[in-house]
């Protein structure tokens, strides 16, 4: 059988991601679509470490490390320079975790989205500040344990609807994606590369240590997040929603939750609450999928 993705690797082995890191898969797959005419900027995030210490890097494309809240503005600056230098074809990407996107980087993200800067903004979402030791972020879901939402006082706020916030900026392209569906992600990026303006890609990237899950379950968890409707996979093109991975019959959320230690403390009624939150959000999106 022919591989469904290009064989070329722009991410080398030997990087410093944990065993079974979802963010590693996210980068590897994305690079296959983006190709070598690509530049990155990273804020503080897991990938700050994954890439490797001085004088090494696991990427075969240029990368500028930057401050935590500055991803989108930095990418906009790189893009402006490339345009000024007549190298407009290069794809410029911000690549940030959920903390750097949902929380501290939201202002710069909003600014770049509103200006419709011609950049990609990737958020690889592992639903907490994993790099600093699993503290809750605006992306942490209701019910989850983190080191700042301990078991007795687990997170009581729902995950911020970042995709809706981005959609409110009327950007030309945005999509959610999952590392469990690499062909879907690949296809979206190939398409988005041809679109001028702001492109937002939100990838769910399970984190075995942070989610207290087995490293071999990373892809399974990413898939279950989609199949349960916890992380629906869609794209929004010029305001039009399309579900790109269909889930006509959704699995119960428990199947996803029970594989993760971060939800181990939840009682039956808590699981029911999560199911309720997920159903509500899914119904909302479903209406948009149907136009």
């Amino acid at each position: 059988m022919k591989p469904t993705l290009p064989l070329d690797e722009l991410m080398s082995p030997g990087h410093l991601a944990c065993q079974g890191c979802g963010a590693g898969i996210a980068m590897r797959t994305s690079l296959k679509a983006l190709g070598h005419d690509t530049m990155f900027t990273f804020p503080a995030c897991c990938w700050t470490v994954i890439d490797g210490p001085f004088p090494y890097s696991c990427l075969e494309v240029p990368l500028l490390h930057m401050a935590f809240e500055a991803t989108a503005a930095t990418a906009a600056g790189i893009k402006a320079a490339m345009r000024a230098l007549g190298k407009d074809k290069t794809t410029i990407c911000g690549w940030a975790g959920d903390g750097g996107t949902f929380d501290i980087g939201l202002q710069a993200l909003s600014g770049a989205a509103e200006r419709n800067d011609d950049i990609f903004y990737f958020c690889y979402d592992n639903e907490a500040y994993m790099n600093t030791g699993i503290q809750r972020s605006g992306a942490t879901p209701w019910g989850a344990w983190t080191t700042t939402t301990p078991v007795k006082h687990f997170k009581k706020e729902v995950k911020k609807s970042l995709d809706d916030i981005v959609a409110a900026h009327k950007v030309p392209y945005q999509a959610t994606a999952s590392i469990a569906y690499p062909e879907d992600l690949y296809k979206k990026l190939i398409k988005a590369k041809e679109i001028r303006g702001f492109k937002f890609i939100h990838i769910l990237a399970p984190c075995p240590p942070g989610w207290k899950a087995r490293p071999e379950d990373t892809v399974k968890l990413a898939r279950l997040a989609v199949q349960t409707g916890i992380f629906p996979i869609f794209e929004v093109e010029a305001g039009k929603y399309a579900q790109t991975v269909k889930t006509p019959t959704r699995k119960p959320v428990l199947e996803y939750l029970k594989l993760q230690g971060r939800f181990k403390h939840l009682k039956e009624e808590d699981v029911a609450e999560i199911q309720r939150i997920v159903d509500m959000r899914y119904a909302e999106l479903e209406k948009r999928f149907q136009g």
Partner: peptide
């Protein structure tokens, strides 16, 4: 601080 070599110089098999 500029990278000059690939992380492929770092065999992680021992993990």
């Amino acid at each position: 601080v500029q990278s000059l070599r690939s992380m492929a110089a770092n065999p992680t098999g021992s993990w």
